[in-house]
Design a protein around this nucleic acid. Structure first.
Lengths: 160, 160
DNA sequence: ATTATTATAGATCTTTATTGTCCATAATAA
DNA sequence: TTATTATGGACAATAAAGATCTATAATAAT
């Protein structure tokens, strides 16, 4: 299990947009050059980000992309969910199996119907793990990375 | 990004082994019946678990699988890493790109070599997220699920 | 020792998801 | 009106996951 390359591209692209906020829009050519990925592929990713309201896009001369809202209001989770989707990280695939029934319901052998809200105990643990992950990713914004980069930069300047 | 079905099978299989600790070994036929997956496929998964020292396997009549150590010493992370592998959840794919350099090193444009230990800031956040996830998965053992299942069961009995 | 039983390892196939390209179209500013 | 830029659809290549089959090795019971 790994995050896709698309997620990597998306995050780096958005950070670049955040970095260029003051200036003009950033075109797909510039972005693709910086990230080292083809324009065609990257534009698919940017389209998704636009559809989900993370970035704005302007066609035409001097067009390009910009952040749709301040960088401190765009979390890592926001970006990741656009690219990776919002399905659960873990889904119990054998919800009809004996064991699932045993784990999900208190030894109820005679019942066959599904009881919503009664998740398999394995799934319950895995969902807990997912929540942990999400919380962390929600706490980290694009702005926090920009700040960190700036700190490093000025620290470097001071050293010299 | 999702956990694979194999991880689901592995976790459920191991929980069943934990549940049957007192009795004899559990054969692949029984396991595959319970989980609703073919014997051939499941046996691949069980082999991996054996190679990583999670379960023991005994061939021959009355053979089968059993846990290689107590259920409270087998964490979710242990099992998941056997199946999903131990690569990082996120790897910065464009480590040679301009932006990566900018984010990883303090505005050092003139250097081209790789500096180990200087991760891209995006990767740094993502690695932090992975650590959160791992910590949670390390804190949850197979035994903890068995305990929970038992609690539910006895609670149910009391109600009746 | 022989036999039935059980796990193991290898090869192979199918399906699905990811990554990537190409082209026609729509929208915009100069 | 035109050059420029993003968009969307179709498509292809690659990689990963899911699954099956067969031959082999190991073991316990007889």
């Amino acid at each position: 299990m790994q995050f896709s390359k698309s997620t990597d591209y998306a995050l780096h692209a958005i950070i670049h947009l955040g970095h260029s906020q003051r200036c003009n829009n950033v075109g797909i050519r510039e972005l693709s050059g910086i990230l080292g990925v083809s324009e065609s592929y990257l534009s698919k990713i940017m389209s998704k980000l636009r559809q989900d309201g993370i970035v704005r896009a302007v066609p035409g001369v001097n067009g390009g992309y910009e952040l749709a809202r301040p960088a401190d209001q765009i979390t890592f989770l926001d970006v990741i969910q656009v690219i990776e989707g919002r399905q659960q990280l873990f889904e119990c695939s054998n919800s009809s199996s004996q064991q699932h029934q045993l784990l999900a319901e208190e030894g109820a052998v005679q019942r066959d119907q599904k009881y919503p809200g009664k998740a398999c105990l394995v799934e319950k643990v895995m969902n807990g793990a997912e929540q942990q992950l999400h919380q962390y990713l929600r706490e980290h914004t694009i702005q926090s990375v920009l700040d960190e980069a700036f700190k490093r930069c000025s620290h470097d300047v001071n050293k010299k």
